[in-house]
Write a protein that binds this DNA or RNA. Structure first.
Length: 649
RNA sequence: GCCGGCGUAGCUCAAUCGGCAGAGCGACGCAUUCGUAAUGCGUAGGUUAGCGGUUCAAUUCCGCUCGCCGGCUCCA
C-alpha cells in the first residue's frame, strides 16, 4: 500500500504507508535529512519520526526556517529543565516556551537561582547534549497524566492538565526527563549546538500577581555558534544606545534619587523637547486643532463623576486644599470636558478639536519605572475631539493618518497597531462597547492597515487603537493611542444643539500622537543612538578654531550663523589641539564641526566636517548657513550632500 | 508592588582573607599655539547610598530603609 506525498515544490511521490518523515527527507537528499528537525504534515507541525499513513502535503522543517528555530529553542528549554531537575531534584516545573529571540522555563524552587547557578546549569546542559538523548513522544489520556504528574509532585503540570479540554494529552521525554508538551521537538538533544542562559527573573505563575512567584531562567539558542555570537554582540550594541546611558552621556536628562520616576530635563534635552513641541503645535494648527491648557489639580468630585475614582483611583495622587480633597490629574480628559461644557455647543462647531500638552501624574509601581519610558509624571500630547456620530469614521481616519505621518514620514519609525477591547474593569454596557470597537476596526480596515487584537486591554471608558514603537532591545512601548468614547459625554451630560434645534449627545475621541513626550524622546534617543537629525540636535554645529589666534574669526562665524535663523551653533574655545576638539564633538554626536584657521579666515570660509560623512571640504559661511537652514527646516533625517559637497575620497 | 542582582570621586571602574580608599576620563591651574577621533605637567575632588549591628578594626560580614538594574504584573 502506498501513500502519495506532495512536497512544497508541487512534486508528488509514492512511499510505503507508514514511512517516517525522516525517511522521506532522506529520499530527497541526505543533506536535507541531516538538516531536518521536524516536519509539517498537512499544515501541522510534527516530529521527524512521525509515520505518514495517508496521502498528505509534507514540508520538511530545518533550523534555517523560523519555525525550525522555534522548535530548537523550545527543545533547549526542555534540555535546560532536565539540567535543572538533575541539579535541583526538588524543583517543580511550570511552563517553558520558545519566545522571540530565545526561550525560558519557569521553576518553583525553594531557593532562588543566583547568576552563578546559570553556569552550573549550562554545564549540565552541555552534558545532556553530549549524551545525545532522543526526544520521544506519546499520548496519554488526561486522567492518567494527572495521576502521574501528581505522583511526581508536579502540581503546576496538574493544574495545566485540569484546565485542558482534550481527552488525550501529549507527553515528551528525553533521558529521564518527562514533560507535558505539544511538541514537536528536535530528534535528539545532540542537535542543540549553540545556546546561552542569559538571566534569572521572578515571574508569577500564570502571570497572576496573586499566585506564587516562580523563578524564570531566560536563555537563547541558535542554529550556529556564529549566529549566537552575532546576537550577543547585537545585545551589547543595543546597550550602547540605551536612552538611559545616552541621556547621561549626552547630558539630556536625569533621574534623581529625590524624585523616582520624575525626570529632570537638562538644557540639551530641553532643546529637543522644544523642537518637538514646535513641530507638534504647527501640525495641530494645520489640522484644525485649538490648543488649551487645563489645571493639574482638580476637585475629587470631578474625578468621581468621570469614573476615575471608581476605576483609576489606585494610580492617582490626592491632596487637600482647605479641607476639600483634590486629585492631581492622571488624564486630561475631564478638564477638556469642562471646557466643552462651559457653553452651549452647536452642531456647526463640530468636530471641535481641543489639543493640550498636558502634564499628568500617575502612581506607577516602583518596579516598573524605566528611564524616560515609564515615569510617574509625563506630558501627553493629548487631544479630545467632540463630534457628531456621523463624523466618527472620518475623524478616526484623520488621526490614523496623522500618526502615520509623524511616525513614518517624519521620524522613519516602524510601528505596530493593536486594537484593545473592553477590559474587566470597564464602565458602560456591552452594546456601546461593541459599537465603538467596531468603529475603530472599520477605520483600520478602511486604511488597509494590519493590526492585532489585544483582548481586554482597553481604557475603562472605551476601546482603543494603540500604536507601539520599539526600543533598542526590541521591547515595545505604547506611544500613540486613539480611544473612542461614548461614556464621558453621557456621564458629563454633554450636548450640542442639532439642526433640528434639539439637544443631542456628541461622541468623543481621546488621542495622543507622541504618547508621552518623555517616552517619545526616549524612543528617539534609541532610534538615532543619540545622533539626532540636525533639526533636533541640541547643538547643530560646533566651531573649532585651529588655535587661539583664530578665536576672533571663529566668534564672527558663530555670530553670522546665529544671526537670524535660530541655529544652534557653539564654539570650542579650549586651548587644545584640533584632533582633541574633534574627538569631543564626535562623542557628543554633533552633526557638523566647522574647522577654522588661517586658510578659512583669509577666504571667509569654514571647513565642514560631518559626524558621519567626515571631511566635506570648505564652504563659504553663507553657503553653509543656507545648507544647514534648509536641512533643519525640512526636518531631514540626513544631510543633503549636494549642498554640502561630497566626502573626500 | 513582587522575585533576584547591584550601589566606591561628576563619569567608568579598582581595592587580596575584615587591616591607612586608588586609577583613567572629566573639572580646574600652568606650560604649549597646534589642521580633521585624545599635548605635557600639576591641583582639587570621598560621610564607600543612608541608618543600625557584629568586631580591636567594616568599602568588605549581618539587619533595615532608599535608589538603580533585569524580569513579572501594570501602562503613555
Amino acid at each position: 500500500m502506498a501513500v502519495k506525498i506532495t512536497l512544497p515544490d508541487g512534486s508528488i511521490k509514492d512511499y510505503e504507508r507508514g514511512v517516517s518523515a525522516l525517511e522521506v527527507a532522506e529520499s530527497i537528499s541526505p543533506r536535507l535529512a541531516k538538516a531536518a528537525i521536524a516536519v509539517r504534515v498537512e499544515g501541522v507541525m510534527q516530529d521527524l519520526d512521525t509515520e505518514i499513513k495517508e496521502d498528505s502535503l509534507l514540508q520538511i522543517i530545518t533550523v534555517e526556517q523560523p519555525e525550525g528555530l522555534e522548535i530548537l529553542r523550545h527543545s533547549a528549554a526542555h534540555i535546560m529543565a532536565e539540567a535543572v531537575k538533575r541539579l535541583y531534584p526538588e524543583a517543580k516545573l511550570a511552563i517553558g516556551p520558545a519566545i522571540e529571540n530565545g526561550f525560558y522555563y519557569d521553576f518553583d524552587v525553594p531557593d532562588s537561582f543566583s547568576p552563578e547557578d546559570l553556569g552550573r546549569i549550562e554545564d549540565e546542559m552541555r552534558r545532556i547534549i553530549r549524551e545525545d538523548q532522543a526526544f520521544s513522544h506519546w499520548e496519554l489520556d488526561k486522567e492518567t497524566a494527572i495521576r502521574e504528574f501528581a505522583a511526581k509532585g508536579e502540581e503546576y503540570k496538574v493544574e495545566l492538565l485540569q484546565d485542558m479540554d482534550d481527552e488525550k494529552v501529549s507527553i515528551y521525554r528525553q533521558g529521564d526527563f518527562i514533560d507535558l508538551c505539544r511538541g514537536p521537538h528536535l530528534p535528539s538533544t545532540g542537535r542543540l549546538k549553540a545556546f546561552k542562559l542569559l538571566n534569572v527573573a521572578g515571574a508569577y505563575w500564570r502571570g497572576d500577581s496573586s499566585r506564587p512567584m516562580l523563578q524564570r531562567i531566560y536563555g537563547t539558542a541558535f542554529a550556529r555558534q556564529k549566529d549566537l555570537d552575532q546576537y550577543l554582540q547585537r545585545l551589547e550594541e543595543a546597550a550602547r544606545r540605551d536612552h538611559r546611558r545616552l541621556g547621561k552621556e549626552l547630558d539630556l536628562f536625569s533621574l534623581q534619587d529625590e524624585g523616582p520616576g520624575f525626570p529632570f530635563l537638562h538644557p540639551k534635552g530641553m532643546v529637543i523637547w522644544r523642537a518637538l513641541e514646535d513641530f507638534w503645535r504647527q501640525e495641530h494648527r494645520r489640522r484644525g486643532y485649538q490648543e488649551i491648557k487645563t489645571p493639574i489639580i482638580l476637585s475629587e468630585s470631578l474625578w468621581r463623576q468621570s469614573g476615575h475614582w471608581d476605576h483609576y483611583r489606585e494610580n492617582m495622587y490626592f491632596t487637600e486644599i482647605d479641607n476639600n480633597t483634590y486629585a492631581i490629574k492622571p488624564m486630561n480628559c475631564p478638564g477638556s470636558v469642562l471646557l466643552y461644557r462651559r457653553r452651549l455647543q452647536s452642531y456647526r462647531d463640530l468636530p471641535l478639536r481641543y489639543c493640550e500638552l498636558g502634564l499628568v501624574h500617575r502612581h506607577e509601581l516602583s518596579g516598573t519605572l524605566h528611564g524616560l519610558m515609564r515615569v510617574r509624571c509625563f506630558h501627553q500630547d493629548d487631544a479630545h475631539i467632540f463630534m457628531l456620530p456621523s463624523q466618527i469614521q472620518e475623524e478616526i481616519e484623520g488621526v490614523i493618518e496623522f500618526i502615520d505621518y509623524v511616525y513614518r514620514d517624519i521620524f522613519g519609525l516602524n510601528y505596530r497597531v493593536e486594537l484593545s477591547t473592553k477590559p474587566e474593569n470597564a464602565m458602560g454596557p456591552d452594546e456601546i462597547w461593541d459599537v465603538a470597537t467596531e468603529a475603530l476596526r472599520q477605520a483600520m480596515e478602511a486604511k488597509g492597515m494590519p493590526y492585532k487584537i489585544n483582548e481586554g486591554d482597553g481604557a475603562f471608558y472605551g476601546p482603543k487603537l494603540d500604536f507601539h514603537l520599539e526600543d533598542c532591545l526590541g521591547r515595545t512601548w505604547q506611544c500613540g493611542t486613539i480611544q473612542l468614547d461614548f461614556m464621558f459625554p453621557e456621564r458629563f451630560d454633554l450636548t450640542y444643539v442639532g439642526e433640528d434645534g434639539n439637544e443631542h449627545r456628541p461622541v468623543m475621541i481621546h488621542r495622543v500622537i507622541f504618547g508621552a513626550l518623555e517616552r517619545f524622546i526616549g524612543i528617539l534617543i534609541e532610534e538615532f543612538a543619540g545622533a539626532f537629525p540636525a533639526w533636533l540636535a541640541p547643538i547643530q554645529a560646533r566651531i573649532i578654531p585651529v588655535g587661539d589666534r583664530f578665536l576672533d574669526y571663529a566668534k564672527g562665524v558663530q555670530n553670522q550663523l546665529m544671526a537670524d535663523d535660530h541655529l544652534r551653533i557653539d564654539l570650542d574655545r579650549r586651548d587644545e589641539k584640533v584632533g582633541y576638539k574633534i574627538r569631543h564633538a564626535q562623542l557628543e554626536k554633533i552633526p557638523y564641526m566647522l574647522i577654522v584657521g588661517e586658510k578659512e579666515e583669509a577666504a571667509g570660509t569654514v571647513s565642514v566636517r560631518h559626524r558621519q560623512l567626515g571631511d566635506l571640504g570648505s564652504l563659504s559661511v553663507e553657503a553653509f548657513r543656507e545648507a544647514l537652514c534648509q536641512e533643519v527646516k525640512s526636518m531631514s533625517l540626513a544631510p543633503d550632500q549636494d549642498k554640502l559637497g561630497k566626502p573626500m575620497p
